[in-house]
Write a protein that binds this DNA or RNA. Structure first.
Lengths: 131, 131
DNA sequence: TATAACAATGTTATAATATAACATATTAAA
DNA sequence: TTTAATATGTTATATTATAACATTGTTATA
């Protein structure tokens, strides 16, 4: 059951399916408990699937929450430029897809001479409902 | 030993001193082991100090690494706009202090109507040495 | 100077997040 | 059809972080 580039293994599909149904970030152990009926019994199975899904861009990790969310770009295959808005009230997380922002950040250079190939940005505030 | 706004308590000073001496991000438990000689014996003592230091902006958390680094702005009292560059090779982390970038991001608005009051940005790449 | 209110500390235990290590199985390709 | 690579299953454990509660120190004020 090895996989060609771009194809998902059984466990990866199970985990991705579950994450896609939720439209909020999920914790790894909450995923684990919920996919146990599908046969994934132990943390490494979930974390391995998550690692791969993050790597190929199907899932993003919300670092400030240690939680995982499906990529909203239906055909996303990269994950090197991510931005999220996070409501401190209701905890709603939304992936920001803003060409100007991503262009600005992808082209950003500081004076260290370092060449960036990836970034992650998390905005915090209060959404309309929570204000 | 309560504290007025802006003053640091004993444990906060101990933890901040130690973090400032390192000029790299430190893990909470590594801090703990190293301040045990100063009397901080248990995780909550370190985490409480860290929480407060982060809150007042003296320390920032590098979310992708679960590590803590002293703020480079010597008089920083806020922590609502942070940006870091992280080398995937040597793991060196540098706080980015770029007025244009912070102005751009502080003013950023998306179409959700959400008003942001805080952001954290982490860039990844390879530094000069590691290229 | 009591005393109340609050902030900080100390302490034990445990929760939550994540990985090491190794055995087995599946697949693709040489 | 053997090999190499990938994926899976499994147990144990490492790492990160917080809950809960008792105690102590500080400030303000009655």
């Amino acid at each position: 059951m090895a996989q060609k580039q771009g194809y998902l293994s059984k466990n990866q599909k199970i985990v991705l399916d579950y994450i896609e149904k939720a439209n909020q970030p999920l914790k790894a152990y909450s995923i684990l408990f919920n996919v146990q009926k599908k046969g994934l019994k132990a943390p490494p199975q979930v974390y391995r699937a998550l690692d791969r899904l993050v790597e190929i861009g199907k899932v993003h990790k919300i670092e400030s929450k240690n939680a995982f969310v499906a990529c909203k770009n239906s055909n996303c295959t990269i994950s090197n430029a991510t931005a999220f808005s996070i409501c401190d009230g209701c905890e709603k997380v939304t992936e920001i897809s803003n060409p100007k922002l991503s262009k600005y950040l992808s082209g950003f250079q500081d004076n260290s001479g370092m060449k960036y190939n990836k970034y992650n940005l998390e905005f915090f505030g209060l959404c309309k409902k929570c204000r």
